[in-house]
Structure formats: C-alpha cells, structure tokens
Design a protein around this nucleic acid. Sequence first.
DNA 1: GCCTGGAACGCAAGCGCTTGCAATGGCTTA
DNA 2: TAAGCCATTGCAAGCGCTTGCGTTCCAGGC
Lengths: 336, 336
Amino acid sequence: MTRRLAEVAKKVGVSEATVSRVLNGKPGVSDATREAVLTALDVLGYERPTQLRGDRARLVGLVLPELQNPIFPAFAEVVGGALAQQGFTSVLCTRTVGGVSEADYVDLLLQQQVSGVVFAGGLYAQADAAHGHYELLHERKLPTVLVNAAVARLDFPQVSCDDVVAAEMAVAHLRALGHERIGMVLGPKDHMPSRRKLETFVSEGCDPELVEHTMFSLEGGHAAAARLVRRGVTGVVCASDLLALGTIRAARRAGLAVPADVSVIGFDDSALMNCTEPPLTTVRQPIDAMGRAAVDLLVAQIDKAVVPADELLFEPELVVRASTARAPEEARAARR
Amino acid sequence: MTRRLAEVAKKVGVSEATVSRVLNGKPGVSDATREAVLTALDVLGYERPTQLRGDRARLVGLVLPELQNPIFPAFAEVVGGALAQQGFTSVLCTRTVGGVSEADYVDLLLQQQVSGVVFAGGLYAQADAAHGHYELLHERKLPTVLVNAAVARLDFPQVSCDDVVAAEMAVAHLRALGHERIGMVLGPKDHMPSRRKLETFVSEGCDPELVEHTMFSLEGGHAAAARLVRRGVTGVVCASDLLALGTIRAARRAGLAVPADVSVIGFDDSALMNCTEPPLTTVRQPIDAMGRAAVDLLVAQIDKAVVPADELLFEPELVVRASTARAPEEARAARR
DNA sequence: GCCTGGAACGCAAGCGCTTGCAATGGCTTA
DNA sequence: TAAGCCATTGCAAGCGCTTGCGTTCCAGGC
C-alpha cells in the first residue's frame, strides 16, 4: 500500500491531488485525464476504486437453506453473477446438518461487515424465537431482501414467485386432462410458499385431505406421495421438482405408470428436468428475473435509496413435458 | 468516521498512539489498556476490526468453479457439514461470469482472516500468472487443501479421485460390451482431471483422434459429442455427468438410440442421475469420503500438525445403469 | 483586440493514522 | 538499597491521502 497515489501520479504525469480525485469519483477532472489515471492504475496492478476502497468491503451475504435442491445453486449463480457485475462479492451461506443456523450466519455476516443480505427459501413463518436475527438486521438498517420468503410482520422488500398463480396453473392443467382426485405434496408446514399453495389448492375446491407435508427431498416426496397414491389420486401437484421425482418413484413402487396412471407436476423447473424419465411437467419459476430483481432491490438499498417494503410477485410459467397425461379411463368412468 | 481515534483516546484517557496500536494488534500495550480501549470502541458504537474479535474467526473458505454441475453443490454440502461438526463455518465462493476470479477470492478470504481454504475442481494447470495467489497462500502459511486439482509445483495436500482408475474402468466396461470405436468428451485442456483421463485413455490403446475438449456443460457435451457421433463411435466416455447428458442428446439428435446404438458413460454420479432417461451409467466419485478427508487434512493443518503434501487418491466405483449396452451388431460385424 | 467565465489542475495545508524514540515506572537482581 | 531492565505509554514526526483555493488556459461574447 505504500506510495500508491504518488507512484500513479508520477507515471501519469499529474499531481497526487488529481489521482485522488479520480479514485474518489470527484468532479474537476477531464475525461481524458481520468481515463489515463485508471489505465495507469491497472498497469501498476492496483485494484480499481469501486472494488474495495474507502470504507467497507463490498460483500453481500446470500443465505440459502440447502444446496441439494438444484434450484438453490441455480439461484446462487444468478444472484452471484448479478452482484459481481455491480462490483459486489457474494458470500454463500448454507445451513448444514451439523450446525450453523440462520441466526449464526446473520451474526457472522454482520461481523464481516457485509453491505447487505439476501435470504432465499428460508422458513420465516415460524412464530417465535427465530425472528430475533431479522430484527437485528432491521435495527442495524442493513439492506436486506427476502426471496420466496414472505415475513408478514417485518417490512423487508420481497421478491417472490406467485404461488397462487402457480397452484392455479397446476390444478387447472390437471383438471383439463380430466383429473378430479388431485393430491398435493408440500414442504414443511411453516414454509411460506407451501402455505400459500395450500390455501390456493383449497380455495380452488380441491380436497384438503389429499395434502401431505414433508421435507424437501426426493425421499420425503416418496414417502408423502406413497400415502397419497394409496388413497387413489390420479394427479399430484408438488412444491418442488425433487418432491415430484420422489412422487414418480412412489407411484412406480406402487405398480403404477407415470403418466398413464398418475400425472405428476413439479415446481421450479430446475436444471435437468427435461432429462428425467419421464421429462417432468413443472411450473417454472423465473429465477433469472427474480434474482436480478432481488439484486436491484438490494443495491438500491445499499445506495441509500428508499425501497418500499413491498412484495414483488413474479408470474410462473407452466412447462408441459411428459409426466402429465389424461386421467386413466377407469378413474373417469368411476366418477360417472 | 471522523476523529475516531482521538475520540476513543480521550474517552479512555490514553494517547491516540496507544489506541492505534490496539486497533492494529501491535505489541506494546498492556492487556488492561487494550481491553479498556476495545470496550470504549464498543461503547462509542464503532466496529471492532475483525481481527480483534477473539477466537470467533473460525472461518474456512471453500472455492468452487461453478454450481451448475450438481457435483459441486453436493461437495459443498459434504465439506460444509464436516466443517460445521468441527466448529467451523464455511464461506462458499464461486467464480461468476461477470466477475470474481480465484485470486480475488483469495484476497477476500485472507482479508476476512479465514483459518483455511479448500479449493475444488479449479483450473490449476495453467502455466503462468494464475499461480500468484497460491504462492501468496503458501507464504502466509495458510492451511490449504486442493481437491481434484493437482498442482505439481506447489506442495499443498491434495485429495483426488483416481482418474487413471476411472478412465480404465470406463474403457474396460465398454470393451467388455464389445465396443471398439470409443470416444471421449473432456473438459478444457488445462483441467487436470481431464488431462489425466486423456493420458489413461491413450495408454489403454484408444484412439486419441476420438477425444474432444469442451466446456463443462450440457451444451458443451452436446457439441463435442456431435462431432464424435459423426465419426461413428459406438461408446463415449465423458468427464462429467452433465457432459454425458449432452452426449445422449447429441446421439438422439443424430437419430441414434442410447444405449442401443451408442453407449454413454458419465463421471461423478451426481444427484438425480438415476432419474434420467436412460438412467446413466457413470463412474462414481466417493465425494463423501473425499470431502471428509479434505476437511480432516485442513483441520490437521489448522491445529498445527505437519501434514505431508501428498495426494490422497480415492478409488472411484462403476455404477452400471442403462445408458450402456452391447455394441450394435453391425459395428461388431464390420470389424470382423 | 480585450474581457469574462468556467473547466482543469497543482499547490500546499491539513486530517487521520502510524511509528520511532524516549520518558516513565514497576520489578528483579546484585 | 541501588542498579538495571523491560514493559508500557506519550510525544511528535511523518506518511499517505484529501481538499480548499489559487493559477492556468481556452472558448466565446463584446
């Protein structure tokens, strides 16, 4: 760090003062000179000003619940890329089995002087203790964005995929194919997007008895769907692609074919879902747009703009592949 | 930020010099005075420099090239979990399109006072500039482990999957099924595991003309495999599962069936590969064991143990599913 | 031509912080 | 008890950077 300014000034042939102004983006420097100084900076191997200079590290925390579900790595890539373009470095924090809770990560991130935090897919609906760390963020006025994780009481800006539309789409698709006994496999009861899907499912007139909660994993989907299959559903709407794959497995284990006997709809459209057997019909989250919106909201807050604590709802999109088909004839016949 | 030092000095009743020494962790300050200064800092609401946060910096950096390939999130989960059990928090760093290079991350991690770094799957074979940051780690004696990323010249402990055995297994499997015209789809030329697989492929007597290099993505695999398929291969060994899925797609696009006309072998056995169409035959990396070994090596270094800079080789395992079958009869006939 | 205004830039003072050095004072040792 | 030592601390010089203000220079109006 020694004599940086003087060295650059000498190389360009200007005064230290001018270099200082360039580095801090101050006015009173011609474009040509500014360019020359920046070039010299690069030539001498110094970091560009925006990166790390002055006060705080340009770090942003990205807190995810897991990495098993491919949607989360995908989301991390989108957000990480968008942040990088804005000159921020993202620090990815994942809850791990043994240990680290969301609150721990918030402590850690505060300690590391992050400029902001993005939470995705967390369990924010829990009533009590778990909220302490959000209030901490709020007190410290640390820029924060929640993705698919509405917390009603706290006014953070939020970006979400519209679960109401997603559930409507899925149910409508199955009904159009003649399905009437439709089941639903959701995540844990305190998972917000799952709650919203459940509400929509019920308000669409589906049977709340045919809803199962489970963990977000293939095995969880398998177990939950096995119970549904036994109760004779012909179509299943799942809250993630992983759950859908588990559901397909459960149907087959019960001797049924997908989609001939049971139709299955996933949610997310994570990677590789067009390579599965059968290719999965699923409701796509526009994670690209959502990730970029989350970053925009975050950066706006970091730049001291006033960001309304609204929820930005993104429209999902039904991707019809081959895991859904007309309801089996006998099922339709039985209903006549 | 103005007059921070003077303000604190006045409050504690010492000189600015002493406060400065405390803030920088310099010697020559009594414990009592040091404590008083830190307390005053907190009282005045200033952030302590992270260095002085006691023993809280149990951080480990985990540097990955990407998250698209499901093997990396999976690896991150294993390493993150194992570290959490040892009381460490992992900070996941991924290179992003726009942005952040491995060297940037090393700077960042050094600045955040991490206890160690795990690198996985990087491109360490590059000859020149890219090595600066490794030497930096070496100079600072920061505990480091490389996974599947042998750097010949630097003596870091390494954990790898045995690429020689992996390539042998794949080739042997295809030959046992009667394949003779075997192709290979690899990652970039400077990717170490790909290099090793290439060497084994050649030393096994396969045709080096039937080797293609590409990016590690489904699309890359598609493009590379299309060239191989045109040249009449009946079996393809791929350096990742993603490449294998691309290869299957290329074969189908050319009007061929998998595995009836072309057999495809992947590498990694990442998640969901038993859900694909057809379920993928692949060479499994024991990432669980590798991840734990990497963490053990790292923690041993952190605990000041002397760890030999050897490469720990883990044996892969052939998982036979349904993307490989006997070579088509006409191909075998043509060879008689 | 001259005057005027403003952009561009350097000078140098000054700010916040670091650091060499010497003063201080408690503690050990002869 | 006196001498010596060394940890602790303040003083003040100095370093790297910022910034108010003055100078220079050029364009355009009169």
